[in-house]
Amino acid sequence: MEELTSMKLDVLREIGNIGAGNATTALSVMLNSNLRMELPVVKVLDFDGIPEMIGGADTIVAAVLTCFSGEVSGMMLFILEMEEAKNLAGTMLGKTYSEDFEGFDHMDKSVLKEIGNILMSSYINSIGTLTNMQFRTEPPAICTDMAGSVLSLPISQLGKVGDKALVIDSKFLDNERPINGFLMLVTDEVSYQKIFESLGIGC
């Protein structure tokens, strides 16, 4: 991956800021809770570094993934460590999960999918507003499994264009407690270039 100028890094951080900021507001309203977002961090990681962000390749997670297309295309992922996912789904559904929890049922999954959908649509739409570009987002899909396995699809998409991943890492705070999870935008260099150009930043 080419070296990013500090100007471009700032732009990516700002995209994350606006995107995740809108997403947080949407989620906060939905949950009627005190959610806040930390300033996003832009990272360039090895593939193995991505599952490490959530505790390692064998950490059990729940993830919602959506694909978007248009002038810029890619995918977006909302990933949560399993206990966090249970907290979130439980808050939405007004239930607690028992000790012998074996997995989410259909309703739990639909709720998480919808939360992911709202978060990611607000993120993607705000990039659209910022860049004045049109995007179409696909209905999301959900998966609960080991982080490494869940991330293999976005990582293989990144693998098509390089050996590093550019990750805009947005962390949420629930009443100041950091939530172990993140929103991740996966796109290619051509798409980043279009985003930069739409904002008047050339090569």
Binding site: C67, M75, E138, A141, S149, V150, S156
Partner: peptide
Amino acid sequence: GATMFVFSSASDFGSV
């Protein structure tokens, strides 16, 4: 070689 995500719309991502 698992298919981790099943999308409702046709997409070739799932078949990797």
